[in-house]
């Protein structure tokens, strides 16, 4: 337990060090990259609760990531243009308010998708979650009031009391705080009584039912929680880019979140963060060398799945333990 905690702390320290180095050497792009890692890591941590700990292989988490992103974008654009959404209320450009709306919206969406899809399992569950996300994707593309295919620019980052969020480091700290909070929350949940039931759902739902606990209720709870966490990450992603487009709702996004969870380490606390680091690193470094960097990413994914069960963090934990 202590060993894996050390690994978790090391991952966070590495992320912070990278951002701080960007600040020290006046390389704001590094801070942007570190922020992106924190956000994607958080999206992955959300998916990991469902996929890693509960065995719910959702291939539609872009729906939550994207909806969170659009909630942030739409509210911010209305506030910017002083243009009412309904009943004369014209959105908000305050992050805290936006997060509340993003949590509500993605929670409701996850409840709806979960109620309909969690009756199935295996390949059917994967396909239904994918289908829901794609529905939202095409909806966003064909809805011209919020940019349609071109996406939506928010011009300014939303505000946070006492911070200048346009400053890269300040915004990084906001995202880092969310990431650390989400990892802390995940670890509490995984080790709680409910966490035992989550793992029982993954491994033996019939047994759990035989103990008088409804596997469906456990799955639905996890799915909603997972969707909300990924949704907040999506809202932060809009603020990072000051832009949101249908691409955050596409199946590529779902795949990306899933890949970084698998490479980083399924059912490990900091696995999604490590996976996001490697993903961004490859995108930047290999992407600079060759247009076909995703080929190498794919190869790496294959190797991890074949030989390194538990991904980067799982391997580190095993290696330190032996």
């Amino acid at each position: 337990m202590l060993r894996s905690n050390l690994v978790n702390i090391a991952v966070i320290v590495l992320l912070v060090a990278y951002a701080v180095s960007g600040e020290m050497f006046d390389a704001p792009y590094n801070i942007t990259l570190a922020t992106k890692v924190a956000i994607l890591g958080m999206a992955g941590a959300g998916l990991n609760l469902a996929l890693g700990y509960c065995g719910l292989i959702s291939f539609g988490h872009a729906a939550f990531f994207g909806l969170g992103g659009y909630v942030a974008g739409i509210l911010a654009v209305h506030a910017f243009n002083h243009q009412p959404i309904f009943l004369g209320w014209s959105g908000t450009n305050q992050m805290i308010a936006i997060w509340v709306f993003a949590l509500l919206a993605t929670g409701l969406l996850a409840l709806l998708i979960g109620l309909l899809s969690l009756r199935t399992s295996g390949v059917y569950f994967i396909m239904i979650t994918l289908a829901f996300a794609q529905m939202l994707y095409y909806f966003a593309i064909s809805w011209p009031s919020y940019g349609g295919e071109d996406g939506l620019s928010t011009y300014l980052r939303n505000g946070f009391p006492g911070l200048n969020t346009m400053d890269g480091m300040s915004f990084f700290m906001v995202c880092l705080a969310w990431l650390v909070f989400v990892l802390w929350l995940s670890s509490r949940i995984i080790n709680s009584r409910f966490g035992l039931a989550m793992q029982a759902v993954r491994e033996n739902p019939v047994r759990l039912a035989g103990l008088g606990v409804s596997p469906f209720r456990v799955k639905l709870t996890v799915f909603v929680l997972s969707g909300m966490i990924t949704g907040i990450a999506g809202a932060l992603y809009t603020d990072l880019n000051r832009f949101v487009s249908p691409s955050v709702l596409s199946w590529h996004m779902s795949g990306e979140i899933m890949i970084l969870v698998i490479i980083g380490g399924v059912a490990t606390l900091s696995g999604p963060v490590a996976g996001a680091m490697l993903f961004i690193f490859l995108e930047q470094w290999l992407g600079g060398l060759t247009e076909f960097w995703q080929f190498w990413l794919g190869l790496m994914l294959l190797l991890v799945v074949l030989f390194a069960r538990g991904g980067i963090i799982g391997t580190l934990n095993r290696w330190r333990a032996s």
């Binding site: 709680s192 035992l196 793992q199 103990l211």
Partner: peptide
Amino acid sequence: SIIPALTCEQNVLLSFEARERRIFRF
């Protein structure tokens, strides 16, 4: 029919807490 990934203690706890209706504690 047990939960292979959990320890013996956790397996029995799961059952005990289910009986006590204390599973939805997060």
